Computed example of a mutant assay.
Amino acid sequence: MKQNKYDEAGFFAKYSAMPRSTGGLEAAGEWSTFRSLLPDLHGKRVLDLGCGFGWHCRYARGQHAESVVGIDLSEKMLERARVMTDDPGIEYRRGAIEDIRFAAGEFDVVISSLAIHYVERFDLLCREVQHCLRPGGSFVLSVEHPIYTALAAQDWHYGPDGAKLHWPLDHYHDEGPREARFLEDDVIKYHRNIATYLNTLINSGFTVTKLSELQPTPEMLEQYAAWHEELRRPMFLLLSAVRN
């Protein structure tokens, strides 16, 4: 199922007001960890799946990537990305992540930030990424953590006084779609457990080189009080892998 909520005016307006939409990568709490998983981008051909406003595309070029292709299904996202980009080395293309088709070995690095949990068939996507990466190329991705996606409610269990008592975990091994609320709207996300993420990458011809469940740093806790909740349950899963 391919969703395009971001081209709905109300949804896009609410997304555009989020801190990570106005402040860029430095306003995204997981960015420093995601950046640490990236290889040296100098001279590399980069593909960004679910590029949104193009923040990662522009970062890659800032690190002297040879070229960057950004893919997104939302025309509104791509319009904003093009307005914010003045660089012939970046090409934005409209399309679903599930539909990518590139030549063998066309890229050195493939990245995807918080988009793949909207993709139903992770196995098919991994095959396409493996195909379009050169041998030794890197695949770096972030998704919502399976502990976060297991229940569609994606919310705490509250006490009588409204205190957040614990994060409920159920149906963890029941993989598949979840109708979740995001920006006051219903969206479909796909829950997979950690083993599925890792084994699918391995079975698709990758070596997993690093995994992070994003434990907040003291700096993150000092900057944003909300990050203290992430000490109680992980919200993000980040992975880096290399094509065999």
Rank of each mutant, 00 (worst) to 15 (best):
N4K: 02
N4P: 07
D7T: 07
A9C: 03
A9L: 09
A9D: 14
F12K: 08
A13K: 12
Y15H: 06
S16H: 09
A17R: 10
P19K: 07
R20K: 11
S21M: 15
S21D: 14
S21R: 09
T22R: 15
G23P: 01
L25T: 02
A27P: 04
E30M: 04
E30P: 05
E30V: 01
W31D: 03
T33K: 04
F34K: 10
F34V: 01
P39N: 06
P39L: 06
D40V: 03
H42G: 12
R45F: 04
V46P: 03
V46H: 07
L49R: 07
G50W: 05
G54T: 12
H56A: 10
H56F: 08
H56T: 14
R58Y: 15
R61F: 14
A65T: 05
E66C: 09
L73F: 09
L73G: 03
S74L: 07
K76D: 12
M77F: 02
M77S: 02
R80V: 10
A81P: 06
A81H: 11
R82L: 14
V83R: 15
V83M: 15
V83H: 13
V83P: 04
M84C: 12
T85M: 07
D86Q: 13
D87A: 12
P88D: 15
I90N: 11
I90W: 01
I90K: 10
Y92W: 02
Y92R: 00
F102G: 04
E106I: 13
V109C: 02
I111W: 12
A115C: 07
A115V: 08
I116D: 11
Y118I: 11
Y118L: 09
Y118K: 11
E120F: 12
E120Q: 09
R121G: 06
V129F: 00
V129Y: 07
Q130K: 09
C132I: 10
G136Y: 15
G137N: 01
S142E: 08
V143W: 00
P146R: 06
Y148P: 00
Y148M: 01
L151R: 14
Q154I: 08
W156N: 14
W156A: 03
H157D: 13
G159E: 09
P160R: 12
A163T: 09
H166R: 14
W167K: 04
D170H: 06
Y172R: 06
H173K: 14
G176M: 04
P177Q: 10
R178H: 08
D185K: 07
K189H: 13
Y190K: 13
H191P: 02
N193A: 02
N193I: 14
I194K: 00
A195L: 02
A195G: 03
A195T: 00
A195H: 04
A195F: 05
S204W: 11
F206W: 13
T207E: 10
V208H: 03
V208P: 02
K210D: 07
L211N: 01
L211E: 01
S212T: 02
Q215G: 00
Q215C: 09
L221W: 08
L221E: 13
Q223R: 14
Q223P: 07
Q223C: 04
A226F: 15
W227Q: 10
E230P: 01
R232A: 14
P234F: 00
F236G: 05
L239Q: 08
N244H: 15
N244T: 15
N244F: 11
